[in-house]
Nucleic acid binder design. Structure first.
Lengths: 196, 196
DNA sequence: TACGAGATCCTATCCGTTAGTGTTACGGTC
DNA sequence: GACCGTAACACTAACGGATAGGATCTCGTA
C-alpha cells in the first residue's frame, strides 16, 4: 500500500512546484509574459523543462496558480449557505469577495499582465467556463432549488459574467450593484419553485 | 491610387483562400483536427505554409470561416429593427436563427469536431466574447435604450450565453424558451428608461 | 540494506507560427 | 506596348511551447 506518504517527498515536490510558480511570476512581471520563455523559467528555477510541465499543464497555467479555490469558493457559496438562505444574495457576497480579491493592489499587476496578453485572456476565459459548469452542477444539485438544468446552467453563466464584467469595470462594486439585480430578476422569472 | 481593383488578382486571391479553407475542412473532417497538421493542409492545398498564414491567422481560424457575419447579424438585429420595436424579442429571433444554423444537419459534424477539440473550443469562446463586445456597443449606441454601459455589456453577455447554452443543449429551441424569459426579466429589472 | 516507485533530468523531436528574403504576375501609367 | 510598383506567393530557417522515451536519483518502506 502506498498510503500515508510521510512527508519529505511531498514537501520537496510542493517546494519545487512553488519555486517554479514564484520564479515564473517574478520573471513575467519583471520582463513581460511574452518576453519570458519556458526555458528561461526552467533555467531560473533550476529545473528541467519536462519537470516544469509535469507540475503545470501549460505556460498560462503558471500565472493562474491559486485558482483552484475559486471554483470551490463559488460552489461552497451554494452548498454551505444557511438552510433556506436565498441563493442569489449568497452568490453575490461570494462574487464580491472574489472581485475584491482580484482588484486588490497586490493582485493588480498580475491582472494587468493578463489583460495585456491574448493567450492569458483566452486561458482565463476557459477557466471561467469550467467554473460556470461546476457552479451549474452545484445549483442543480441543491434540493431547495427546483429548477431545470438549463436554468441552472444559465444562472451559473450569468454569475460568472457578473464576476468577469465587474472585475474589468472601472468601478467594480458599482457594476455588481447594477448586475446582480438583473440576475435576481432572471432567477425569479425562471419559474419559481412549485410552492411559493 | 489603388482604387477599384478590377479583378483577376482579387479573384485569384479569393480562390486561393477558398481552396485552403475547403481543403482544411475536408482533411479535418476526414482524419480529425488534431491528426492534421498545418503542413498537411498547405501541401494538400498546394500552397506554402506562409501563404496559408497570410490568409488565416491561426489553425483554428480555418474552421471558423463564415463567422464574420455572425457578428454583423447580431448587431444588425439591434440597429435594423423596426422603430420602437422592443429589443429582446428582436435578439431572440436572431439568436434562434443562429442556433438553427449551427444545429442544422449540414453543420453538425463541424460542431461535433469543435466540441471535441479543446483548442477549437477555446477559440470559439474568444470569438463569442468578441461578439458580445460588439453587441454591447450596438446596444449602448441605440438612442431608444437609455441604459448604462454596464447594463449593455451585461445584456450582451447574457444573449451570447443564450446562444452558446442553447447550441449545446439537447433541445436547443426549448432551451431558448427557458433562457429568454430570464433575459427579458433581467432587462426589465435593469432600470427601465426614465420615461415609461 | 535493497527494492519499488515517484520525481527529476536529458535528449530529441513535433507542431504552430513567424521572420527574412526572393520571385512571380497582375494592375495602373506613360 | 514597355515599365514600374506592389500584392500574392514561395522557400528556408528558425523560435517557442509542448511531449516522448529513457536514464538517474531520491525517498519510503519492507
Amino acid at each position: 500500500m502506498t498510503v500515508q506518504q510521510s512527508g519529505r517527498r511531498e514537501r520537496k515536490k510542493a517546494a519545487t512546484r512553488q519555486k517554479i510558480a514564484d520564479t515564473a511570476l517574478r520573471l513575467f512581471l519583471e520582463r513581460g509574459y511574452d518576453a519570458v520563455g519556458i526555458r528561461d523559467v526552467a533555467a531560473e528555477a533550476d529545473v528541467a523543462v519536462t519537470t516544469l510541465f509535469s507540475h503545470f499543464a501549460s505556460k498560462e497555467a503558471l500565472v493562474f496558480e491559486q485558482d483552484e479555490d475559486f471554483e470551490h469558493r463559488l460552489t461552497r457559496a451554494v452548498t454551505d449557505r444557511a438552510p433556506h438562505e436565498p441563493l442569489i444574495p449568497a452568490l453575490r457576497r461570494e462574487v464580491l469577495a472574489l472581485v475584491r480579491h482580484c482588484t486588490a493592489d497586490s493582485a493588480a499587476p498580475i491582472w494587468r499582465m493578463i489583460d495585456a496578453s491574448p493567450a492569458l485572456r483566452k486561458y482565463d476565459e476557459s477557466v471561467r467556463l469550467r467554473h460556470a459548469e461546476s457552479l451549474a452542477t452545484a445549483i442543480a444539485a441543491d434540493p431547495d432549488l427546483t429548477r431545470s438544468e438549463t436554468v441552472a446552467r444559465t444562472l451559473a453563466r450569468f454569475v460568472i459574467d457578473a464576476y468577469s464584467l465587474s472585475r474589468e469595470a472601472p468601478d467594480p462594486e458599482a457594476a455588481l450593484d447594477e448586475i446582480f439585480p438583473m440576475i435576481e430578476a432572471a432567477w425569479q422569472a425562471a419559474g419559481p419553485p412549485p410552492r411559493t
